[in-house]
């Protein structure tokens, strides 16, 4: 980790939801460094602030207080559209519920981010098919989500997330809706993307089996980082 300069830095990040009597502090001062090329698993009990942190890291939300630096640039001061452009350029998202457009083919789903980059139709097709090939679904390009299994849908979602060659892939419980066999397939896919394409992967998971694929595991508790462990043998079971 020391050899890599931190890609992402959180400094005393707080997040407060609501106001007045119903006010709730979801993050109470999170400090976290994430190195370029790392594979991070975020674990912790439900309600401990994992998703809140991921939303801030994904530039979907802003901290109520504290600093968020991406490549040394302050993100917490950016406005809505600036953050959108940042997501467009550097980030890819994978969700628990896949979040593919229904009645839209796999290829069209994968092409969607390219549309906002203003790529030509031919280029979209080329990059889209290449991304589908990386997740092993190029033969299924003209199938709609309804015609695909859960595991396949999540792979389409991963193809959509990586089609723009992002720096960071954010995945909030990507295997939460899948059985263990499909889950392992997804984890192997994420691992290979991390190793081969050098994409920094941030993943929230409940399951130690999935976290075992990560290099760094961040444990959350009550809106704070409880501890960080580095795993040298990826794929091995985590000691609790």
């Amino acid at each position: 980790m020391a050899s890599n300069p931190p890609l992402i830095q959180l400094r005393g990040v707080r997040k407060v939801y609501g106001a007045g009597a119903t006010q709730f502090q979801a993050l109470k001062g999170v400090d976290l460094d994430i190195a370029q090329g790392d594979f991070v698993a975020v674990m912790g009990p439900s309600g401990s602030g994992k998703s809140t942190t991921m939303n801030i890291l994904g530039c979907l939300d802003v901290p109520s207080a504290g600093e968020f630096l991406f490549r040394g640039h302050h993100i917490e001061t950016l406005d809505r559209d600036q953050r959108a452009l940042l997501r467009r350029k550097y980030l890819g998202f994978v969700f628990q519920g896949f979040n593919l457009l229904s009645r839209t083919t796999a290829l069209e789903n994968v092409e969607l981010p390219l549309l906002y980059r203003g790529e030509s139709k031919a280029r979209r097709r080329e990059l889209g098919m290449a991304a589908l090939a990386k997740v092993g679904l190029d033969r299924w390009w003209d199938h709609t989500p309804a015609e695909l299994s859960g595991g396949q849908q999540q792979r389409v979602a991963i193809a959509r997330a990586i089609v723009t060659e992002p720096d960071v892939l954010l995945a909030d419980e990507p295997t939460g809706n899948l059985d263990s066999e499909r889950s392992v397939e997804i984890m192997e896919l994420l691992t290979s993307l991390n190793r081969e394409a050098g994409i920094t992967v941030l993943m929230v998971t409940h399951e130690p089996d999935m976290a075992a694929f990560a290099r760094t595991v961040v444990h959350f508790k009550d809106g704070l980082v409880e501890r960080i462990e580095t795993q040298h043998r990826q794929g091995a079971a985590v000691e609790a």
């Binding site: 994904g58 979907l60 809505r80 559209d81 959108a84 452009l85 940042l86 997501r87 467009r88 350029k89 980030l91 998202f93 979040n99 593919l100 457009l101 969607l112 981010p113 906002y116 959509r160």
Partner: peptide
Amino acid sequence: TREIGIRLAIGAVANE
């Protein structure tokens, strides 16, 4: 709404 959410997450700006 969910489609809009996906588009926004992917990096669509409000104007788009």
